[in-house]
Design a binder for these strands. Structure first.
Length: 373
RNA sequence: GCGGAAUUGGUGAAGUGGUUAACACGCCGGAUUGUGGCUCCGGUAUGCGUGGGUUCGACCCCCACAUUUCGCC
């Protein structure tokens, strides 16, 4: 079946909303955070550990799985869920982000995008049809339209053409989409420009997708204001009865600001990437576990955190693991960081239901950014 | 005991008679937003074994001493 979004409560003062998302693998509350598992694994974590953080949906990536092991092998295995032993919902990104991270503007044509494989340099063509066909075979629960994700520095003129093409690509993808159990999302682009976001949102919604994403945000060194504006320019044109997904975000404060502006779903590599480099989220800001001051600190990362890492391990031990490059350290920090963002969304949902989301933001900022901990 | 060689930061080490002593690792910080995991960016020797001497100037030349190391007895 397709996913089904149920809007339950709208905040009185903001665009924030609480709802549920019914999927092939259970029902989940929104706003939600989705950990990223590009190559059919949330790096360093087992599916059981991912679930234990409270995460529902996870991401996988069309481009990466296309190259290795290939969608046919995943299909032969019985689809992505069986292949990776994950019985929760899986969302596949279309490869659109790799247009941003791997391709050059000259590689982009009406037909699609020419990539040079990052593995062996082979030239490859990814098109909307191809992306959807791969995702159909991967058998994810939510597929994404193949879009162009332009850099933050792109000009209005460039973005105008890009956005129009992305709408055409969305239509082409929709036309060949066949998997009846799989939902398909459209993606709103348009950079920091109100007129382009509006155009992109209206035209994409006309095609009638199962949900809508806001993309092209948090790329490069995009200013936070541009990102918040991009959301505000897009949201008014998205239907209330469909989920809204802000792609690639993010930082705790950005999730809060996104929720306040009407976003239901987020994904980001941040919790797992910074974990591998020794950083942990805490209510008092980011903690670099490698700092010498934690050498003899035999307390958990956060005393009141209920994650596996905080319940069983100390800063001194995790610091040691990270310093000697042991995978278990990255694993413990990844568990903590994902749990941190999941807890954040849990608290946001409660705040929405109690109509005190703005107060929650103030409390969070005071705690997260205060100087002395 | 005799002869040779060596002695530069936490480590391995480069270096030239002339402003701020290379590089690597380590260490200390920082970054990281739809993932090209194990990356990137900073900082880190007021001093070149010790004491003399030569020189306008010495880590670099000379002498003595100390330590290490190799060979011989």
């Amino acid at each position: 079946m397709k996913i089904k979004y149920n809007l339950i409560h709208e905040d009185k003062k903001t665009q924030a909303r609480y709802g549920t998302l019914k999927t092939n693998y259970g029902e989940y509350e929104t706003p939600m955070f989705m950990p990223v598992g590009t190559q059919a694994t949330v790096k360093t974590l087992s599916p059981e550990e991912v679930k234990a953080t409270g995460a529902g949906v996870i991401l996988a990536n069309t481009y990466h799985l296309w190259l290795r092991p290939g969608e046919d092998i995943v299909a032969k295995a019985g689809g992505l869920h069986k292949f990776m032993n994950y019985d929760g919902p899986i969302l596949t990104d279309s490869g659109g982000f790799q247009v941003f991270s791997l391709a050059k503007p000259k590689d982009i044509s009406e037909e699609g995008v020419m990539f040079k494989s990052h593995i062996d340099g082979t030239k490859l063509m990814l098109t909307p049809e191809k992306s959807i066909a791969i995702q159909n075979k991967l058998d994810s629960d939510i597929a994404m339209s193949f879009d162009e994700c332009p850099p933050a520095s792109a000009s209005h003129e460039y973005l105008k053409n890009s956005v129009e093409r992305t709408v055409r690509w969305a239509k082409r993808g929709l036309d060949v989409h066949q998997n009846p159990k799989q939902s398909l999302f459209g993606i709103v682009q348009g950079g920091p420009y109100a007129d382009l976001r509006k155009y992109s949102a209206i035209e994409t919604v006309k095609l009638d997708f199962d949900g809508y994403s806001i993309g092209g945000v948090a790329n490069d060194d995009e200013a936070k204001e541009d990102m918040y504006n991009a959301i505000e320019y897009s949201i008014p044109y998205l239907p209330k009865d469909k989920p809204r997904y802000l792609m690639g975000v993010g930082e705790p404060i950005d999730i809060i600001e996104g929720v306040i502006r009407g976003i239901d779903m987020f994904d980001c590599v941040i919790p797992t990437r910074i974990a591998r480099h020794g950083n942990a989220f805490t209510r008092h800001g980011r903690m670099n576990i490698k700092n010498a001051k934690y050498k003899e600190d035999f307390t958990p990362i956060e005393e009141d955190c209920d994650c596996y890492a905080c319940k069983h391990y100390t800063k001194a031990y995790i610091r040691h693991l990270i310093n000697v490059d042991e995978t278990f350290g990255a694993r413990l920090l990844s568990i903590h960081n994902i749990r941190f963002l999941i807890r954040l969304t849990e608290q946001l949902r409660i705040a929405i239901k109690e109509d005190r989301i703005l107060e929650y933001r103030e409390e969070f900022i005071r705690s997260y950014y205060e100087k002395d901990q």
